[in-house]
Design a protein around this nucleic acid. Structure first.
Ligand SMILES: [Mn+2]
Ligand SMILES: [Mn+2]
Length: 558
DNA sequence: TGGGCGCCGG
DNA sequence: TTCACACACTCCC
DNA sequence: GAGTGTGTGTCTCCGGCGCCCACA
């Protein structure tokens, strides 16, 4: 007996959300059972044996924000039974706590300002605050008094309001993680898909394809997530750092999450002036930018010889271009400070520049202003930034991007493959990408791109931003940009899809009659090329792809 | 009382 | 509740 | 020029509604 892949239930079912939830549970119990503990499996099976209305109510609450709810605010007529009847089995089996203990913070989220004024009437009077006091001011005044957590009627003996707290939040979060492979997506994916607000590519993945291979990986993910939440709060950074695992994660994907977290912590520490703590975090981080930050801290602390030594050691192994350039700049800077001869910077290609004086236009961006200024009867411009080249790439390589590799797709709600930004993303699919790009050599790429454009219209993709890619633009691009130019730009995208997705010029200009085009980056006064924009310029110039930097000055009207 | 914001839900 | 870009500010040559 | 932090638009759908708050 095979469990069907969860798909969005039809909305004419009043308990459609329960149908969705149950299909996920069945999927998890069938395909991820080895990643659940015995007690988790038992608990999920207990859920399955609850009365239907109780299940539905619990799912409603699980889908909502937070874990605490007021019964007097719940309104779910579709349950078909009185609220008390749906609640009773949930209390009995301890899915809901009828007497939750509330911190002051919880109280302020659950009660209205008007109610809080009643609850804290005495304390407000003592503090000399009027009953018209705002919620924020009231909270500030009360937090200084360190009031201990307590059930609602300890705070407010006169109330008839009842609260409940969902008790198994960690279990439901774990289920969501197993299913989606992330905690960014939520149960609402189902209804959004059913409503047609989001459309996803249908990928025929193997049933063995999943995000996690072991329970240890799931635990590691959840632990890092908790550390990240602690980082967002105003918790002591040293405590958060101590909680982050100090050993490198075996799974490269988890290690990259650990590295990014350590980097974020270091950055926060650096901004808060805790430089030693920042360095501790950067040292452990595998994120490439962490090394640059570590070096910058050394430089700021005046530890110049240490910085040089570390910089040179860093450059001895492969470093992404952005970080390599930052380290090289730092080396030149520090060498000057040390009075040593600075290493010579690589010569940069000369960037073609057009200077324009334009009258300032109201409600029109500088990019639009240039586009209008350059428009002539024989030429047309579009403000596309990254969307054109990424879009053409995404359309041509659609079949490679959505190829059902193990671990790339494992539920029906993927905008793109789960491993898109991992190091081996392209190499795992090299033959597939080569096959897609071969259409550029054969010459049938136009038909293929247009066909994909029509067939996949509106389907979410990490490379195709549909609203920016209207048909006229697409056809002009295919008419005016030579295949080998596309191929060169796509090859660069494939070198590092994460880094090279951005930095493309603002405008594209077409001359349809001549079958000619150019890419134009617009810079207003006080703006400069960003590093990733300059690297695209360097590449295009080296590859004979026509690019132009357009520097705008505002002309004061006389 | 009206604007603004966040949450909910199909 | 992100990402990519523009913009504003500081410091130093 | 270089480094850094911040603002802005736009991707996550959009109407209804409760609530907060500033104002009259
Ligand atoms: Mn731009
Ligand atoms: Mn620009």
């Amino acid at each position: 007996m095979t469990t069907p892949l969860p798909i969005a239930a039809p909305l004419d079912d009043p308990l459609y959300y329960l149908a969705n939830f149950r299909s996920v549970l069945a999927w998890i119990l069938s395909h991820h059972r080895d990643l659940l503990s015995r007690s988790e499996t038992d608990r999920l099976q207990q859920f399955d044996s609850l009365p239907r209305a109780a299940q539905a109510l619990l799912v409603r609450l699980v889908m909502r924000k937070g874990t605490l709810f007021r019964l007097d605010k719940l309104n779910y007529p579709e349950l078909g039974v009185p609220l008390d009847q749906a609640l009773e089995p949930l209390f009995k089996a301890a899915w809901l706590d009828p007497q939750p203990v509330l911190a002051l913070e919880d109280l302020f989220r659950l009660l209205t300002r008007r109610e809080l004024v009643v609850v804290f009437a005495r304390r407000l009077e003592q503090s000399g605050l009027p009953s018209s006091v705002s919620k924020g001011a009231m909270r500030d005044a009360l937090t200084t008094q360190t009031l201990p957590p307590a059930p609602l009627h300890s705070w407010w003996p006169d109330t008839s309001t009842q609260l409940v707290e969902v008790t198994d939040t960690p279990l439901f979060e774990r289920v969501r993680l197993l299913f989606f492979g992330n905690l960014r997506q939520s149960w609402s994916e189902f209804v959004l898909t059913e409503l047609g607000h989001q459309r996803y590519e249908k990928v025929e993945f193997k049933r063995t394809s999943r995000a996690f291979q072991s329970r240890a990986e799931v635990d590691a993910y959840l632990h890092l997530q908790r550390c990240r939440e602690a980082l967002e709060q105003e918790v002591s950074l040293a405590e958060v750092l101590a909680a982050i695992p100090s050993e490198t994660a075996v799974n490269p994907w988890l290690e990259s999450r650990r590295g990014r977290l350590l980097y974020a912590l270091g950055h926060k520490a650096e901004r808060g002036g805790q430089l030693d703590l920042a360095i501790q975090a950067y040292i452990q981080s595998s994120h490439s930018e962490a090394r640059v930050r570590w070096l910058r801290v050394l430089e700021r602390q005046g530890q110049l010889t240490e910085a040089v030594e570390l910089a040179e050691r860093s450059l001895a192994s492969p470093v992404p271009a952005a970080q390599r350039e930052a380290i090289e700049r730092l080396l030149r800077r520090v060498a000057r400070k040390l009075g040593r001869s600075a290493p010579v910077a690589d010569p940069r290609p000369v960037i073609p520049v057009m200077d324009l004086g334009l009258p300032p236009l109201k409600d029109v961006s500088v990019e639009q202003a240039v586009a209008r200024y350059l428009t002539e009867p024989d030429t047309v411009l579009f403000y596309v930034e990254n969307t054109l080249i990424n879009g053409l790439f995404g359309l041509l390589c659609w079949s490679a991007i959505y190829a059902p590799l193990p671990g790339a797709f494992f539920h029906p709600f993927h905008a793109g493959p789960a491993d898109l930004y991992r190091d081996d993303f392209v190499t795992r699919r090299q033959a597939l990408f080569d096959a897609c790009l071969a259409a550029l050599d054969r010459g049938d790429y136009r038909e293929y791109i247009v066909q994909t454009y029509e067939q996949k219209q509106g389907i979410a993709s990490p490379f195709v931003h549909w609203p920016s890619l209207d048909r006229t633009l697409l056809e002009l691009a295919l008419q005016c940009i030579p295949a080998d130019h596309l191929k060169r730009m796509f090859r660069r995208l494939l070198e590092d899809p994460g880094q090279h997705r951005s930095g493309l010029p603002d405008l594209v200009q077409f001359w349809p009659e001549e079958g000619r085009y150019r890419l134009i980056e617009v810079k207003g006064p006080g703006d400069r090329l960003q590093d990733n924009q300059r690297r695209w310029f360097d590449y295009c110039l080296a590859q004979d792809i026509p690019v132009l930097l357009c520097q705008v000055q505002w002309m004061e009207p006389e």
